[in-house]
Structure formats: structure tokens, C-alpha cells
Amino acid sequence: MEDYYLKVSKGHTDRRKLKSRLMIILCYVAAAMAILPLLYIFFYTTMQGASSLNIDFFTELPKPVGESGGGMANAILGTLILVALGSVIGIPVGIFAGIYITEYSKSIFANVIKFVTDVLSGIPSIIIGIFAYGLIVIPMKSFSAYAGGFALGVLMIPTITRITEEMLKLVPHSLREAALALGIPRWKTTLRIVLRTAQSGIITGVLLAIARAAGETAPLLFTSFGNSFWSTSLDSPMASIPVQIFNYAISPYDEWHSKAWAGAFVLISLVFIVSLIVRLATRNKFSQTA
């Protein structure tokens, strides 16, 4: 009797172990499929781009066709300015909208915002570019950094709103009650207890939104347009790395192609560095160990 029982149960466990192993292998395959393309892009861009990278790339203006050398200094600066402009619009609006949705969710208006945010996050970025074109470029009668920054800002809003909302939802309700029970006013509870508890998640989300905005081409094509010269005035066209890559990549010149690769490499490195900073800055911040 005992032997019989053991026999049956052994075959059964073997089958279960096999199933378990199979599932684990499938998980590994899925993980590999997610990571490999990323690594491939990263290494390929590095190989193609790093070779044509030099000091000039960061300090010189683009040279006309036929002349060798030159760089993308104006585009790098332009991207920084445009992203900064976008952040000025996108970060506060996004964060405050997220706070409103979670902390004042009783109102119908909050649900409307939530729905609109969902729709907005699904809108193709080129549509946002057209929106900024119609709203700013046409009345101003000129492509401008304002329009580009505005488009990037609008692009960032849904991402930041959603991540703020998700992070605030993770803050336990008991924490809000604890703060209010101490006689702390509601707005201070929100700003100094709730927001602070969720801050590392929100910062991560904001930086990811910035990284994404930095790589956007479509919303800039007919807003900030591009510029071959130094331009720091916000009401005139401004160069940016993605647009410059686009222009170089579709050109027929090998010299420009390698410049595009270098630009792509710089862009990816920027995103990579930002992500790395996020990781380091938020790592183990609230660890439980003493």
C-alpha cells in the first residue's frame, strides 16, 4: 500500500516539476526577448556612433555639405533648452493634476481629468505637434522654441499625471489620517507627508517622461523646426538632436549619416545617464535597515 502510494505520487511530482521547469524557461525566453533588442540597439548605436564622435561634435556648429568636421553643439543645446521648457510646463501641470485626481477624487471633475489624461496619453505625438503648430506657430507666424517646448510639455503631462496618481495611490490612507489626526492641515498633509512618501516614485516617473520627451522628433518637426546656427532666443526656430538626426539620416551623404549615428549615440547616452541617476538617487532611500 505504501509502495503503491509512493509510486503514484512520484510520477505526479515529476510531472509537476517538469511543468515548473518549462514555465521558468519560458519566462527566461520572454525576458531575453525584451532585453536583447534593447542591448542590440545600444551596442549597434555605440559602434556606429562612437567612432564619429569627437570634441568638435560637442562644440562646433554643423558644416555645410561637402565640408568635413563640424558638430551638433547647437542641437545639443537646443534639446536641453526645449526639454527644460517642456519640463516647466509638463512637470507642474502633471504633478498637480495627479494630486487632484487622487486627493480630491470625490469630484466628478477629477474623473473627467482622469479620462482626458488617458485619451491624451494615446494621442500620437505628431498630432500634439500639429496642435502646437496651430496654437502657437500660426499666430506667431514663425517656428519657435516656445512652440517646441509647449509640444514637449503637453506630451509629458499624461505620463507625469498617471505616474503621480499611481504613486499617490500607493500611499496608505492611514498615513493621511495619521497626519490629519495630529491637526496638520490638509494641504500640508498632502504636500509634506503624502507627496514626500511618494516622492521617489514620482521623481522616477518625471525623469522617464523627460527622457522620453528628449527623444521625440515628431512634435518638433513643425514647431521648433530646426536651425543650422546658434540660437538661444526662444521665439525663433531652434535645433534639436532628434530633428537633426532625422535631417541627417534622410540625406544622401555618408558624412551626414555618420553624424546622425553620433547624434543617436549622444541621445541614447543622455537617456541612459538620466535613468542611471534616477536609479542611484532613489536606491535604498527608505530602506528598513538601520
Binding site: 496608505p172 492611514s174 498615513l175 489620517e177 497626519a179 495630529l182 491637526g183 512618501t197
Partner: peptide, 26 residues
Amino acid sequence: GMVFQKPNPFPTMNIYDNVVAGIIMN
């Protein structure tokens, strides 16, 4: 004042700041 069922100290603060949180923010 109120003390709740589940302990709910402010997770982002140290012991000292937890105790003074109510005073500082008032």
C-alpha cells in the same frame, strides 16, 4: 489626538522627525 489600529509612522521620517512632525507642521 488619535492612535490607530495599525502602527502608521511616517515612513520617510526618522524617529525624531516623526515625533515632532505635528508640532513643526502646526
